[in-house]
Design a protein around this nucleic acid. Structure first.
Length: 482
RNA sequence: CGGGGCGUAGCGCAGCUUGGUUAGCGCGCUUGGUUCGGGACCAAGAGGUCGGAGGUUCAAAUCCUCUCGCCCCGACCA
């Protein structure tokens, strides 16, 4: 046990100080670092490599469902942002404004995009004339600026990266279908399969929905400290923006109609989710599908056998690199033990050790990050074993997270018990809610827990609203959230 | 915007209460050497406007005033 403590002396205890543990992991694993700009972080190469792999998995799904990528301006004239009243009001407190160009004061100030509905809608109104122009299915990968008062690495930063999809449809039904398709087929599949993070999907309450939307669907994930993180949202915008931006088309029945729209997004915040869902006392654990390095090879170097070992690992790497993301750590200045800890901290799923004894026996040592399992593997079986292990790790991370999620969904007999559980155990509470906003707000005031979603999986039962006691058939999840 | 904490070498910190040699320690860094199967060791080095401004004083990292910045926890949001 003493040894275990030595391994992690650079990281705060996850048990004792979760927040500090999180910051330590992000920085020591070199995902990101603070900069001199308040609230803005740098995503370092290792973190960005992770993001690139995440992007690839999501981008593929977005394209497979018929969307195309584009790029819209960073700046949004104030008059455009003001067009949809609810929308402006929602974002007003956190918009950054550009007021000067060089030395000249601008006639109209420009928002640095806090989200792109306004600018995109202004163009959609030009592009949409006929029912034949629909649907428009566009996504963009961009940076976003929101002037947050309190920031946390990845979870809430002044500038962050995301993708935002913006679609236009001819009917309400088609827009709704799109909203749900993104939620389930794209986001849920991506987050669960690639990031190994189980989610609860459902609808946001009126209070929690996107400013300007008809309704918002969400994916909620449980972090290992018992707090919940919104992992992605998909909004049915209805015709609110269509009316505000005058996006109309002439339908087949020769009538002029407003379009129906959706928008949806996921952000670099998901990197934070990966850290908080999978990480442990020793550091990160990255899901193999998105890990920048899937296999790290560590040569065990002695004077006499140095050349032989280095040749062997180089040979191994060239054999493996067409199948896996693999790197060798052949640095001279660190001992193998140091390297083991280093790459565990960085969450690399598999480690291969190669020493002179292994070469004699035609084998290597393979060690899993997720469960520390150590395997002696004959060279000829290596690719097969790595393949299998990476799959196992991916699955194991998901199953562990899923089990944790299930164990932390609780039901309560009354509000007293509700308060106790939110305070002591956190996690999610599954209970009935009468639909009244007052009850929702009172619960929040008294417990800091919010309704994370109204899950799609409803039961044909009913019960009492957790706050007012009124009979209701609406099941919801409450939790404290990031 | 409220509460708390922190600014001293690249990083982490001590020194401040009670002002006084040349501002220290650990890690890291550089050079040379020995090492390497779970965070190796020896030797020699480099590196500081003590966050900033003003004040008190013979003398300020240390005391006073103001100020800037960062982090954490809350309220709001992805």
């Amino acid at each position: 046990m003493q040894k275990d403590n030595d391994f992690v002396k650079e990281i705060s205890s996850k048990e004792e100080d979760f927040s500090q543990w999180y910051v330590d992991i992000v920085r020591k694993a070199e995902l990101a670092d603070y900069t001199t700009i308040k609230g803005c972080m740098v995503i370092r190469p290792y973190g960005y490599g992770l993001w690139e792999n995440m992007q690839a998995g999501l981008d593929r799904r977005i394209k497979e469902t018929g969307h195309k990528n584009a790029y819209f301006p960073l700046f949004i004239p104030e008059s455009l942002l003001n067009k949809e009243a609810e929308h402006v009001e929602g974002f007003a407190p956190e918009v950054a404004w550009v007021t000067y160009g060089g030395k000249e004061k601008l006639e109209e100030r420009m928002a640095v995009r806090p989200t792109s509905e306004a600018i995109i809608c202004s163009l959609y109104s030009k592009w949409v004339k006929s029912w034949r122009d629909l649907p428009i299915l566009i996504n963009q990968w961009v940076n976003i600026v929101r002037w947050e008062k309190v920031t946390r690495l990845f979870l809430r930063t002044t500038e962050f990266l995301w993708q935002e999809g913006h679609t236009v449809h001819k009917s309400k039904e088609e827009a709704e279908e799109e909203t749900l398709k993104i939620l389930n087929q794209v986001y849920r599949d991506y987050i669960e399969s690639d990031l190994a993070i189980p989610v609860i999907v459902g609808r946001k309450t009126e209070k929690e929905k996107f400013a300007g939307a008809l309704h918002t669907y969400t994916l909620e994930a449980l972090m290992t400290d018992g707090k919940v993180l919104q992992a992605g949202t998909s909004h049915n915008l209805g015709q609110n923006f269509a009316r505000a931006f005058n996006i109309k088309f002439l339908d087949e029945d020769q009538k002029e109609k407003y379009v129906w729209q959706t928008s949806w997004g996921t952000t670099t915040r998901l990197i934070g989710a990966i850290v908080m869902v999978h990480g442990d006392e020793r550091g990160l654990k990255l899901p193999p599908k998105v890990a920048p390095i899937q296999v790290i090879i560590i040569p065990i170097i002695f004077d006499q056998s140095k050349q032989k070992v280095l040749e062997k690992v180089a040979q191994l790497k060239s054999r493996l690199q067409s199948n896996f993301r693999v790197e060798i750590d052949k640095r001279d200045e660190y001992t193998p033990g140091w390297k083991f800890n280093h790459w565990e901290l960085k969450g690399v799923p598999l480690r291969i050790e190669v020493g002179p004894k292994d070469i004699e026996k035609g084998q290597v040592i393979v060690v899993r990050r997720d469960n520390s399992q150590k395997m002696t593997v004959k060279e000829e079986n290596l690719i097969e074993i790595i393949n299998k292990s990476l799959k196992d790790i991916q699955e194991n991370l998901f199953q562990k997270a899923k089990q944790f999620l299930e164990e932390n969904i609780r039901e309560v007999a009354n509000f007293e018990e509700f308060k106790e559980i939110i305070e002591e155990k956190r996690g999610l509470i599954r209970t009935y809610w009468c639909g009244n906003r007052d009850c929702e707000e009172k619960v929040k005031e008294e417990t800091k827990a919010t309704i994370r979603c109204i899950p799609f999986k409803q039961e044909k039962t009913s019960g009492k609203c957790i706050y007012c006691g009124k009979e209701s058939s609406t099941l919801v999840y409450f939790a404290r959230a990031y």
